[in-house]
Structures are given as structure tokens and as C-alpha cells.
């Protein structure tokens, strides 16, 4: 019996004019070139984003002051078709080393013709992260996540 209401995953999909092997290589090996550097957790600006290419590898940011801030770990490494890695920054914006409290990101890579590929990304299991008590209460109290977000949209419109 699981009494924690699941939070909906974030999903995205991109079509690429490149072979699937190249898509996987850029997604994993070149993550520093495409992950937007303005998004970071550490106090210092990001110098580099690193994803270590193996099961158990670290995913982390290195700051311009050489500080490091862990984001997660690689769970599944199946080049060039699949990678699963965790996001372990919780609702208090801290890294939580407990693997049972990790959200997961799965990226699947498939060919769509010789030089085309499709990448599907799903970031899921947000309910595992610590710091979600209030949102759980809101969901259990009726309406659910979609209504909560509609509330956001309405308040933005009302006050913009």
C-alpha cells in the first residue's frame, strides 16, 4: 500500500537529423555543451556539467570556484539506446544520497531512418523526493496537480 500520491512526470521528445549513435553520444558525453548553465544548484556559477559514462557514474556540476555539487547517479547505461539516471536534489534544494529518495530520468533513443533519430525523455518519481508533504496534501484534498497548476496560471493572469 502506497499512500503517496504520484506526481506526474515531466516528458519531452525531440527529433534529430542525426543517427541514433550520435544522439546518444552527444546526450551523454557532451552534456556540458547543451545543459543550460543558468540552471544550477550550487552557490557558484557552473563551470562544467559532468555525467560519468557508466553504471554508478556521478552526474554533477562543478562550479567556477571548483566546488562540486552532486545531482544524481547513472542507473542504466545501454548505449546507444537507453540511459537512466537519477535526480537527487530534493525539495529543500539539497542533494539526498539516499537512493530510495531519488527521482529518475530515462532517455530512450531510437532510429527513425538512416540519419534520423527520436529521443524521448521522462523525468519521473518526483513523489520520492523529500519535501513534498504540502503538495501531497493538496492532491489528496481534491483537485490534483492539474488543478493546482491551473491555479498558478490563473493567478499569473490575474496579477500580471
Amino acid at each position: 500500500m502506497n499512500d503517496v500520491a504520484p506526481l506526474p512526470p515531466i516528458t519531452g521528445s525531440v527529433s534529430l537529423a542525426v543517427p541514433v549513435e550520435h544522439a546518444f553520444a552527444v546526450f551523454t558525453g557532451d552534456i556540458n555543451t547543451w545543459w543550460p548553465h543558468q540552471f544550477h544548484i550550487g552557490a557558484a556559477d557552473i563551470a562544467e556539467v559532468i555525467l560519468e559514462p557508466r553504471v554508478g557514474g556521478r552526474w554533477y556540476e562543478r562550479g567556477v570556484d571548483d566546488s562540486e555539487c552532486d545531482w544524481g547517479r547513472v542507473l542504466v547505461w545501454e548505449p546507444p539506446h537507453r540511459i537512466v539516471f537519477t535526480w537527487q536534489i530534493n525539495g529543500t534544494w539539497q542533494y539526498d544520497p539516499d537512493p530510495t529518495k531519488a527521482s529518475e530520468i530515462e532517455a530512450r533513443f531510437r532510429s527513425d531512418g538512416d540519419h534520423q533519430s527520436i529521443v524521448d525523455v521522462e523525468h519521473r518519481l518526483f513523489e520520492r523526493l523529500d519535501g513534498g508533504d504540502a503538495i501531497r496534501g493538496a492532491i489528496n484534498g481534491g483537485g490534483g496537480w492539474a488543478l493546482l497548476l491551473e491555479g498558478y496560471a490563473t493567478s499569473v493572469k490575474d496579477h500580471a
Binding site: L7, I10, G12, P36, F39, W87, I89, N90, G91, T92, W93, V121, H123, F126, E127, L129, D130, G131, G132, D133, A134, I135, L148, Y152
Partner: peptide, 16 residues
């Protein structure tokens, strides 16, 4: 807000 997973998920949606 202390129920930070709400905020975190909203933030991550934009990040992704």
C-alpha cells in the same frame, strides 16, 4: 515555499 518539490518540479519543467 517549504513544500519545495512543487517548486522544484516547476523549475525542472523549464529546465528540461
Amino acid at each position: 515555499r517549504p513544500d519545495g518539490v512543487t517548486a522544484l518540479r516547476t523549475w525542472l519543467d523549464g529546465v528540461w
